[in-house]
């Protein structure tokens, strides 16, 4: 008969299904009963807030709105916070996407949600462009000739007749470039920041944020809002709690679970090395 595995072995080999079940529970519980843990503001988020705060009211803002159906839950809270911040200052926003085909739908959805509150007029203060394939090439093309790349908006309206688009001669007319995506800022740094000297602030998913830090500390981007944590921090700076703040407790519990599991695994690992049976 096969002997039952010893404790060190079991500590190192907890069934993945148990781990996944624990994660699910630890996400759901704080969502149902929020703990309300405070969040410290990171340097990147504060820098992003300050950079947007520093642009003059009514400025033109170019927004690479690269949200897709997968990363929407992680990116939308920061995007909503940015919309509030920009609309408070009555900035004029041009949103476009070159990574994600579905991004214009999300941009329009967010605009409809927040724009109503500030009585924003489409075509005069906000316009959403259709998806353009080509990625880095498309970014370079937009830099060279934004009107040529977008003769029509997402809804098929001619852009040359729009009051907002008539104000734009080239990329240097924009006060700031914002980027919301699940990718790093590298393409935009190469094709827009370096070439036209436009300041840039990025919002990206948690996976991408460590890589994007290199651009922040080099001064190539002026601010970085990383994932839900960054969004919650931004909401705090804006004094407007939103969905990110509510989701932060779930992040706390799952991060704690990660640490506990890693510690358990290592206890098992060392016990198995020191134990009478030796390593397995």
């Amino acid at each position: 008969m096969e002997s039952k595995p010893d404790l060190p072995y079991r500590l190192q080999n907890i069934d993945t299904r148990i781990i996944h079940a624990l994660i699910l529970i630890l996400i759901l519980l704080p969502l149902l009963r929020p703990i309300g843990l405070p969040v410290q503001i990171s340097a990147g988020t504060r820098a992003a807030y300050n950079a947007i705060e520093a642009i003059p009211a009514g400025s033109l803002v170019l927004w690479a709105y690269e949200m897709n159906a997968a990363n929407e839950p992680e990116l939308m809270p920061a995007a909503i916070a940015w919309f509030h911040h920009l609309m408070r200052k009555r900035c004029k926003i041009v949103a476009f996407s070159i990574y994600s085909e579905e991004a214009p739908i999300f941009a329009q959805k967010a605009f409809e949600t927040v724009g109503k509150e500030y009585n924003y007029v489409y075509g005069e203060e906000f316009v959403v462009m259709p998806f353009r394939a080509g990625m880095e090439t498309a970014v370079a093309a937009i830099g060279r000739d934004i009107h040529g790349v977008f003769p029509t908006d997402f809804f098929g309206n001619r852009t040359d007749t729009m009051p907002l688009m008539q104000e734009i001669k080239g990329l240097s007319d924009f006060a700031i470039l914002l980027k919301t995506s699940g990718w790093g800022p590298d393409v935009f740094v190469r094709q827009m920041v370096t070439v036209y000297g436009i300041p840039m602030v990025a919002n990206c998913t948690g996976i991408v944020a460590p890589g994007a830090m290199a651009y922040l500390s080099a001064g190539q981007i002026q601010g970085l809002v990383g994932a839900l944590t960054g969004a919650a921090e931004y909401e705090q700076l804006l004094r407007r709690p939103g969905t990110a703040a509510a989701m932060m407790d779930a992040q706390s519990t799952t991060h704690m679970l990660t640490v506990i599991l890693v510690l358990l695994g290592n206890v098992g690992f060392y016990a198995s090395r020191r134990g009478p049976k030796g390593g397995r």
């Binding site: 907890i14 839950p73 695994g265």
Partner: peptide, 22 residues
């Protein structure tokens, strides 16, 4: 898409547990 994307969180935690050994 959001559902599938969220699997990343599950995978990352279980992978960290399996591989982060001193």
């Amino acid at each position: 898409n959001s559902t599938v994307f969220s699997l990343n969180g599950f995978f990352i935690i279980s992978a960290a547990y399996r591989t982060w050994r001193l």
